[in-house]
Amino acid sequence: MFEQTDPNQIQLTDEGELKHFITTEGLSRELLTEILDTADSFVDMSVKQVKKVPLLRGKTVVNLFFEASTRTLSTFELAAKRLSADVLNLNISTSSTSKGETLKDTLMTLRAMHSDMFVVRHSSSGAAHFIAEHVTPDVAVINAGDGRHAHPTQAMLDMLTIRQAKGDFTPLSVAIVGDILHSRVARSQIHALRTLGVSDIRVIAPNTLLPRHIESLGVKVFTNMQQGIKDVDVVMMLRLQKERMNTALLPSESEFYKLYGLTMDKLALAKPDAIVMHPGPINRGVEIASSVADGERSLILDQVTNGIAVRMAVMSMAMSGQAKNRPNLTGVGE
């Protein structure tokens, strides 16, 4: 739908700092590590009486959601508020676009309101990129999920959760299981895992839910879950995206659960200290058993907590890159 230029020409400043966050693809290991380190200090903030810092005080963050979302929207909203920004949530699917306003007109209107950051969720791949191209240089754009393309903050909160549990990325075996075909999360995870040095990345799915040429991303493909999950350190489950399935890709949900659902039996094939993750919302009894989702190896709720910290990190880093990019300001201070 949208024409693409190299995303890193858009999302990085000339000095290589983040000014938008569109995709994890092509970002350096140093930059991904910087995001995780910054997020770590926001995680520690939760012990303070006042869980707020003034970094984005006086800035206006607009959550532009063209597609329904509860968890991503609410964690972005909380992240912005903990950075002291003013937040506006716009659910565009019920707004002006239904009156015939084009995307570009909507953006120009919001820009005229002196917004400083757009957090964008859209069902079309490339939407955040398109918006970043058309609002630069003075508005930062954060991708909160675009079509099948990318969901970079989800991938980074997953990386933070893995780092907290396992420390070093390089020796890990990581399995991504489920609906790879429709998953922007899987794509962003694969890019981030590779960049951070994970050598063994596996995807496990039926052939109908695997994108073509997925091997070219440097992953091993398994259609048999028992083989794929053997001795892994991390199991990352994906949600079965019923709303994106236009054709009959699956015989039935119960058949899928039997073959690819994460049960205690299948988890027993992974390493004894393997961790289980899921981006949510969970379809219990479709891709994951309740005993696993609620079990002691599940880090699903840690992922939600980490989501706020990662989003705070990315938002403050992008705003920092934007601020430094602006001319005519001179630094004063110690």
């Binding site: 700092e17 910087e34 380190d37 910054t38 770590d40 200090s41 995680v43 520690d44 903030m45 810092v53 003034p54 970094l55 403050s316 880093m317 705003m319 920092s320 890159g321 601020a323 430094k324 300001l329 001179t330 630094g331 004063v332 201070g333």
Partner: peptide, 23 residues
Amino acid sequence: LDISFHRDDFDQSGLNPKVQPSK
């Protein structure tokens, strides 16, 4: 104490990339 998140020159110099958590 790390004061990076409370500096008053964020708009001029941005975020300190080596920010450490306050402990």
